[in-house]
């Protein structure tokens, strides 16, 4: 296993081998390396993702933000040749342990993608989908309404629940995907550039929603929009790629600190638009 080289001076910094994960940490990453075949995509990642907060992953293209995000719910397992070394603890449990079912992980760690991708089904069925395949036995109408309300979409769609999800606007479709993700009551919601395909008002609505949702969920968001990271997140992690093209973490800190007084000059260069 590669030794971590990232110097971190924040509360996020983890010891080489954490004996116990603190209660306010949802995801704890230790010495994580990620390979696609012979290519090392991530190197020596050490990161603690705080519970009920929004953590933003920022950095130039190719710095491994999305790859890291996809390590959190084993989405990379679906890529042939993908291999993970190191540890990702979710509520203290190693999600890469051989006994762990990746489907179970993805149920608890939901994901929202860059382009809204509702199923070609009704608004109602989109939200109910995950619950049905998981054998949900409760009141489905209530569960659907609750999820749509959570995603701040209920008022806009309550009279057209039977309409196709694809008939909604882009911003509404993305909120539908968020409703679909929260329906199965995950602990974590991963968002991979959730607003990059949306207009400015829909973007602000998604950011507002993140602030709302982080009261009950832990959110990790990958974004290229620096203002979005500044507005919507509590913690910011800056990643870049090294000479070997492997993505690694440069600096992690409170969003306030990263955007007013970053400690690493690479972070400063990136957020002020002079590098990367």
């Amino acid at each position: 296993m590669t030794t971590a080289t990232t110097a971190m001076t924040t509360p996020h910094a983890t010891a080489a081998a954490p004996a116990a994960v603190s209660a306010d940490t949802t995801l704890s990453v230790t010495n994580l390396d990620m390979h696609y075949g012979a290519f090392r995509a991530l190197r020596g990642i050490n990161l603690e993702v705080k519970r009920h907060a929004v953590t933003a992953l920022i950095g130039p293209s190719g710095s491994g933000k999305s790859t890291l995000l996809r390590c959190f719910n084993r989405m990379n397992d679906l890529v042939p040749g993908a291999r993970v070394e190191g540890q990702v603890l979710f509520n203290g449990e190693d999600i890469y342990h051989p006994s762990v079912d990746p489907t179970e992980v993805r149920l608890r760690v939901g994901m929202v993608f860059q382009k809204p991708n509702p199923f070609p089904k009704s608004v109602y069925d989109n939200v109910a989908f995950g619950l049905r395949i998981n054998g949900f036995k409760g009141n489905m109408d209530d569960a659907v309404e609750r999820s749509l309300r959570r995603a701040a979409l209920w008022d806009e769609v309550k009279d057209r629940l039977k309409q196709s999800g694809l008939a909604l606007s882009g911003g509404q479709q993305q909120r539908l995907c968020i409703a679909r993700a929260v329906a199965v009551q995950p602990d974590v919601i991963l968002m991979d550039e959730p607003a990059s395909a949306l207009d400015p008002i829909s973007t602000l609505a998604i950011e507002e929603l993140m602030r709302e949702l982080c009261r009950d969920y832990t959110i990790v968001v990958v974004t290229h929009n620096m203002q979005q990271a500044a507005r919507a997140s509590d913690w910011t992690a800056f990643m870049t790629m090294g000479e070997d093209r492997a993505g690694h973490l440069v600096e992690v800190g409170s969003t306030q600190q990263i955007f007013t007084n970053p400690q690493d000059e690479r972070t400063e260069g990136y957020i002020t638009g002079r590098f990367g």
Binding site: Q227, A230, F259, N261, E268
Partner: peptide
């Protein structure tokens, strides 16, 4: 320019 960090300071 929506400056941050040292530019903002």
């Amino acid at each position: 320019q929506q400056p941050v960090a040292s530019d903002l300071r």
